[in-house]
Design a protein around this nucleic acid. Structure first.
Lengths: 117, 117
DNA sequence: ACTAATACTCACCTAAAGGTATGTATTATA
DNA sequence: TATAATACATACCTTTAGGTGAGTATTAGT
């Protein structure tokens, strides 16, 4: 697998390429909330604990730039913006779901280990 | 899903928990090389393009601390150390393989898009 | 004139990730 | 006495991720 350039950045392998798209603290949580619903900015903000405006906005912009979500702005006051998964984004759901299940298993196992101690 | 604490750090959801274990530039490449072989430090070093000693060592240590790989040191000169996947680490292979396939698809699609332009 | 909504934007800071370059311990062998 | 092998360690630096807190534009309603 040779190196691959996307948007001016060099990626060493396909896994790294995908990880940058869904990695970090906030991208998976955002994608996950959109898995079967269109959501407004404010809804995402309320649904995702701990996230700040700055983080929500920057991550949404990046997800959009990578073609994983779509953004629809309504010209009303107060503003209204709807975010939804694209086809490309929907394909990620299988992966995220699998990561999530593995994570839940690990957490369960950790709990058991801690009880024994 | 409530917050979860592991090794003094707070995780907001199971996906984030797993992402920290396999995320970053180097962890997936390392795990991938060990998928069906035990490997020595020097072999990993040569097999993974662009990686430095510092990065290889720190990432190996973290993977070991998270119980994803095992480390076996032979008391010989010059030194010899073997790294292998644990059962916990092997379970990750399904996920990494899926991420890899999705990545390969995306890269293919990118190439096509660039040709058209 | 003032406030309420909503979806941002900006300035500033800290911490973590990652890169570069160099050094080290040990023993067999030339 | 010098060198080769191997698996690290260490110091230093730059870049990126992420957090905090405050401000903004627009219009309807009081």
């Amino acid at each position: 697998m040779p190196d691959f350039i996307y948007k001016g950045k060099v990626y060493y392998n396909p896994v790294q390429f995908v990880m940058e798209m869904i990695g970090g603290t906030w991208k998976a949580p955002i994608l996950w909330r959109l898995r079967n619903e269109v959501k407004r900015y404010g809804e995402l903000r309320k649904d995702i604990p701990h996230i700040s405006d700055k983080m929500l906005t920057t991550q949404l912009r990046q997800l959009e730039a990578d073609g994983l979500i779509s953004r629809k702005v309504y010209a009303v006051v107060p503003p209204k913006t709807e975010y939804a998964l694209t086809v490309k984004g929907k394909r990620l759901m299988v992966i995220i779901e699998q990561i999530r299940e593995y994570g839940l298993e690990l957490i369960e196992e950790e709990k058991k280990n801690n009880e024994i101690k």
